[in-house]
Amino acid sequence: MSVVFSGAIFGFFYAWICSTMWGLDATDPRVAIQAMQAMNGSVRNAVFAPAFFGTPFVLWIAALLAWRTLRNRAALAFAVGGLIYAAGGLILTMTNNVPMNEALGLLTVPTDIDAARAIWVEYSGTWQVYNVMRTVFSGLTLALAGYGMMRL
């Protein structure tokens, strides 16, 4: 489960980098704002929550089980992976991306394309910086989970 959860959340964040945000950046900013508001509203669901919130706990359980069977390298990899995701994925998202998403969600989409473009450019650039960071941290988490599995 540690590799599955880590891979799911890494893939989720990665998809935003290489397709979703590029597509939104290429469209009318009024449409981009509306689409992002809709996606942010729909992501809070029972399918997404286990990978987003559960990944560090699955890794820490794997670390405990590996440690109890004297697989110390595996235990360390799982434990560090859980810490990296907790800080660089979960907490980073909750303190940066989520507040930005909530602020965007409160906006009425401007009818003026230049006003919408100004909002979107400011939002998208900053949001993507944080998304790249959480993707890198999630990728490290996945690599550590894979290493931990190899060491079992």
Rank of each mutant, 00 (worst) to 15 (best):
V121R: 10
I33L: 07
T141Q: 00
A87R: 09
L76F: 11
L92P: 01
N131I: 03
C18T: 11
S138I: 01
A115I: 11
Q128I: 09
V47I: 12
W16R: 01
V136C: 08
G146P: 00
S138N: 01
M149W: 15
N72Y: 15
A77H: 01
F137S: 12
A35H: 03
Y130A: 08
N96V: 10
I17V: 12
G146V: 14
L152A: 13
F57W: 09
Q37I: 07
W120V: 02
W120E: 06
I113E: 15
I17D: 11
G105A: 11
S19T: 09
Y130P: 03
R117K: 14
I91D: 01
R71L: 13
R71V: 05
T27G: 11
I113Q: 13
G11Q: 05
L59W: 04
L83R: 02
M133Q: 14
I9E: 03
T135K: 02
A79Q: 02
Y123Q: 08
T135F: 00
T69P: 04
L144H: 04
G88N: 02
S124E: 08
A62V: 04
V136A: 14
G7A: 08
V58K: 05
V98D: 06
V31A: 13
P29K: 04
L92Y: 11
T141M: 00
F137Q: 07
W16T: 06
G89D: 07
L152M: 14
L104F: 06
A116Q: 08
V132N: 12
P110H: 10
R30K: 13
R71N: 13
S19P: 02
L104H: 06
I61G: 11
G54N: 03
Y123P: 00
M100C: 04
L65C: 12
M39S: 09
L90V: 03
T126N: 09
F13L: 05
G23D: 07
A35K: 04
S138M: 06
I84D: 06
A74N: 05
A77F: 01
F48A: 03
G11V: 06
T126Y: 06
V58W: 04
N97I: 04
L106P: 01
F53S: 03
A79H: 02
F137Y: 08
G105C: 10
